[in-house]
Amino acid sequence: MTDRYARLRLFEHADLSKLAKKRVAIVGVGGLGALSAEILARLGVGQLVLFDYDTVEEANLNRLVYRTDQVGVKKVEAIRGHLRAANPDVQVVSHPYDVTDGRGLKALKEETPRCDLVLGCVDSFAVRLFLNAMCVQSRVPLIDGGASDDGVNGSVHVVIPGKTACYRCNRPALKDSSVAPPVRRENGGACHFTSLPTTMAVIASLQCQEGLKVLLGFGSVAPFLMYFGLEGRLERVDWKRDPACGTCGRRRR
């Protein structure tokens, strides 16, 4: 191990050098995923598998990692050089495809069972549920992160298949379509929400912190963490698994 890990060797709660043998997939390398990828690369995670079909846009530059000269470049390609420069030890595998279709889906199906952890950094609820189902099926831990529409709050959800609540558990609105009517977006409803690099950095850090615990087995994994930026408050919720959950429950229909 080279000297770049000198401070990490002083960490007493776990042997961080074991990260060199770990393989972590990151789905979505936007404001959240790009930061998580950089943190994990600097920690010395052996292999990072990145998924994102999107290209770098000028609107992405308010967040970290991407540079102005990378506008128009595929995100997974743009970040590859950055990660290698940050830590040449890390091996980066990139898939510039949509994970719900064609080559991206095929790659995700192949890669997920081979990974020790999947980080969900997507902006679509549908894809979150899809990743959740795939990780539960493959029995690979998933850590989903997300920020609120107003940019100041966020959450991190740790899904350890068979142990903690999955993403579909404990969400009443997901069980019965009659619980809540569909939203009529007649008042505004722009689809591009604000995104603060500060909140993104908090959520990405929490995501990676929980990821370390899952990968190395130290500390107590928080099943669900909520971050309230305006109040400066962090809240842990110990959700129970739902036996009737459509994705992970034993009594699912």
Binding site: Y97, D98, D123, R171, A173, A180, R185, C191
Partner: peptide, 22 residues
């Protein structure tokens, strides 16, 4: 009210489904 899509290019946005996902 549109989002980028890997297959269709731009498609209609369904992010609001997060609130009452059915």
């Amino acid at each position: 009210r549109k989002v980028d899509d890997g297959v269709l290019g731009l498609r209609i946005c369904d992010m609001h489904m997060e609130k009452t996902y059915w």
